[in-house]
């Protein structure tokens, strides 16, 4: 039995004028670390709220741990852990008071499930008498995770836990999730950061309420149909504008210190031909190499394809 099963879920707001989710189907296996990757407004939070029984879908069905999200909402509320997006704890309660409160809310105590949160809690325990409002972003996030875990949920929903948190805290957070996975907890986590996708076992790329792709990060990257090239020169802005007018070009966009490009025809001497073209346009320091695509490259390609289909 899968931990989460979503079938043809559609959700609209504003009397059907805004479509948040359009015919989404998806399955997450028990104990899986599943990532929902997409920008703000893609529909991630709506999906989370439907699965945590806070919203009712217009169409479709979904089960969490075998329970129906509408009929069996009481059972689901007893067995899932949830960290909403933009969630802040009670700012005027201390770390310990917050945790105690959430523990009792679920009819348990800190000591009962201390093993589960120990790894995370020891990092914030020195500050347990500090008010949550005075904690740093990273520590708040750890406390929130402790609060969501304190009742030993079978499924954990984390809606954008790393948004607005700096790179160091983000890295630590993902390491904590990996350790939780070993405890057989199913985790569904959403993020707008594409680079975090590789840290999940399977991911769904979501945009405008539609799934672009659902698979392991490796397979999504492997399904990239073309050879991707990284191009670099001394003046990146100039070279970007020049490559845009290259006749054999299919797509080009900036990607860190390089441009990522694909070509209509994967002809033999593509690198030397492009170099010649760019030199003729007075670019210096030209470097071209073949590279493996990333999740972000895949996302950009799938997003472009989806919008092309829509236009036709």
């Amino acid at each position: 039995m899968s931990a989460i099963k979503i079938e043809h879920i559609t959700k609209t707001y504003d009397k059907g004028n805004v479509t948040a989710l359009n015919d989404i189907s998806l399955e997450v296996a028990k104990g899986e670390l599943f990532g929902l990757i997409g920008p703000d407004g893609a529909g991630k939070s709506s999906l989370f709220r439907i699965l945590t029984t806070l919203l009712i879908a217009d169409k479709g069905t979904a089960t969490v741990d075998g329970f129906d999200v509408v009929k069996d909402y009481k059972q689901i509320r007893g067995c899932v852990g949830y960290m909403p997006g933009k969630f802040s704890l009670y700012q005027d309660l201390t770390v310990e008071e917050n945790l105690t409160f959430f523990a009792s809310l679920f009819g348990t105590s800190i000591s009962e499930n201390y093993d589960l949160i120990k790894d995370i809690y020891v990092q914030i325990e020195p500050f347990k008498t500090r008010r949550a409002g005075k904690l740093s972003g990273g520590m708040k996030q750890k406390l929130a995770l402790c609060c969501a875990l304190i009742h030993k949920p079978t499924v954990l929903f984390l809606d954008e836990p790393t948004t607005g948190v700096d790179a160091v805290s983000r890295k630590e957070f993902w390491e904590m999730l990996k350790r939780l996975k070993e405890q057989q907890i199913t985790i569904m986590v959403s993020t707008p950061y594409m680079d975090e996708a590789n840290l999940c076992e399977r991911i769904a790329l979501i945009q405008n309420g539609e799934l672009l792709s659902v698979d392991t990060p490796e397979k999504i990257v492997a399904s990239y149909p073309q050879q991707l090239y990284a191009v670099k020169a001394d003046n990146m802005h100039k070279i970007l504008n020049d490559v845009r007018f290259y006749e054999n070009l299919q797509s080009v966009y900036a990607f860190g210190e390089y441009l990522h490009t694909t070509f209509k025809n994967d002809e033999a001497q593509i690198e030397s031909k492009l170099t010649a073209y760019l030199q003729q346009k007075n670019n210096s320091g030209i470097e071209i190499k073949k590279i493996e695509p990333t999740i972000e490259d895949s996302f950009i390609r799938l997003m472009t394809e989806a919008s092309l289909i829509k236009q036709h």
Binding site: P39, D40, T163, Q207, A254, M303
Partner: peptide, 21 residues
């Protein structure tokens, strides 16, 4: 560009480059 999709993020940077020019 917080939370913006990867394509729009790049369009945003095009605007930044243009302003710098």
């Amino acid at each position: 560009t917080g939370g913006v999709d990867p394509i729009t993020r790049r369009q945003f940077w095009d605007l930044i480059y243009k302003a710098a020019d």
